[in-house]
């Protein structure tokens, strides 16, 4: 048991490192291409080793703790944010066999863990003893707490449709078709609300108010440098991966191949592609979508951010839950 635990721990850490490297590189390339630039080109062919070089740089940088900061909490915050991101990884099914912890309350668990992220941001912002950081922390508090509702409700809609809280069960219910195809309008609406609200929970543009570059310089992590900053950044990308994985699992069938109808030639071809590839493909599609948002839209103002949640997303997702319940009760989905 200890050996299994060790193997899992090592593979999770490896996954973290690789994901961090790949996603940062991907973000920079996506941004560059949208901005008619080439992006990193120097380190390795097409700049592939750029993020590796950046990591080395970040490790070797001086670790600055500002005067008057609460040292204990200042050091704790980046650790907390990384640990929370790690915890949320546990119940996600990467393929039909690869799942760390097949929990029967997986969806609920991920929602619960992701609600803790705000604490580390609040702590980081408060402990920095910087006014910009404090404003950023306050903003992120208001933002994450409100958007959690919409995320939760869109999850509830999907849980209603699939009738289970367990990720592996939810994937199994999509054997014939993904929920986005057979869930009618409620699944679509839940998908969109989930993507929007989780972008907000990730503090990414257009909802990046806690770090608003042009207003608060870097918001809650203004004072962080070196590896501590890297941990904040890493956990942002890990969280992005988790959100995309959840969306892929709930709406796009997780590791399930694309199937149309019953037992035909097309389905058999699709079955040859390994489940892990399906899963990764879907996850990276959603990650790309979130990146696309970031490099297109301007940032919202704080009151508009809250208006969007409380006047639009929340009522819509409440009605959507009702509709999903109706569909489930009447059995309208295929």
């Amino acid at each position: 048991m200890i050996i299994t635990a060790l193997i899992i721990a090592i593979s999770v850490i490896t996954l973290f490192a690789v994901l961090g490297l790949v996603l940062v590189y991907m973000e920079r390339k996506v941004a560059a291409f949208m901005q008619i630039r080439l992006g990193p080109m120097r380190v390795g062919p097409w700049g592939i080793a750029q993020t590796l070089a950046d990591t080395v740089k970040l490790i070797s940088k001086e670790d600055i703790i500002p005067n008057g900061a609460d040292k204990f909490l200042f050091n704790l915050a980046p650790l907390m944010v990384t640990v929370i991101a790690t915890l949320a990884l546990a119940p996600l099914p990467f393929s039909d066999k690869w799942i760390i912890w097949d929990s029967n309350v997986g969806v609920f668990y991920v929602a619960a863990i992701s609600s803790l992220t705000v604490i580390s941001i609040l702590t980081g912002g408060w402990a920095s003893n910087n006014k910009y950081s404090l404003i950023g922390a306050m903003r992120s508090g208001a933002q994450i707490v409100s958007y959690e509702l919409s995320v939760g409700l869109s999850l509830v809609a999907m849980v209603l449709l699939s009738g289970s809280l367990s990720f592996s069960d939810i994937v199994m219910t999509q054997q014939d078709a993904w929920w986005i195809f057979k869930g009618h309008l409620p699944a679509w609406i839940a998908f969109m609300v989930f993507i929007i609200a989780s972008t907000a929970e990730l503090n990414r543009n257009p909802f990046d108010l806690p770090e608003a570059e042009s207003e608060l310089t870097a918001g809650f992590h203004t004072e962080y440098s070196g590896m501590k900053f890297a941990l904040f950044m890493l956990s942002e990308y890990i969280n992005m991966f988790i959100v995309s994985a959840v969306a892929a699992t709930l709406f796009l069938g997780g590791w399930m191949p694309l199937h149309f109808g019953q037992d035909n030639f097309f389905n058999h071809i699709m079955d040859y592609i390994p489940p892990l590839v399906w899963f990764a493909g879907k996850v990276f599609f959603i990650i790309f979508l979130i990146m696309w948002f970031r490099w297109t839209f301007p940032r919202l103002r704080i009151d508009q951010l809250l208006t969007l949640e409380w006047k639009y997303l929340l009522p819509i997702s409440l009605i959507n839950v009702l509709a999903a319940a109706w569909i489930t009760v009447t059995g309208w989905h295929f």
Binding site: R37, D208, A212, P298
Partner: peptide, 16 residues
């Protein structure tokens, strides 16, 4: 202006 409002992409198009 785009950059101040949080959209970075216009910055590069304008500069081009």
């Amino acid at each position: 202006m785009g950059m101040d409002l949080g959209a970075l992409t216009p910055f590069f198009w304008g500069f081009r």
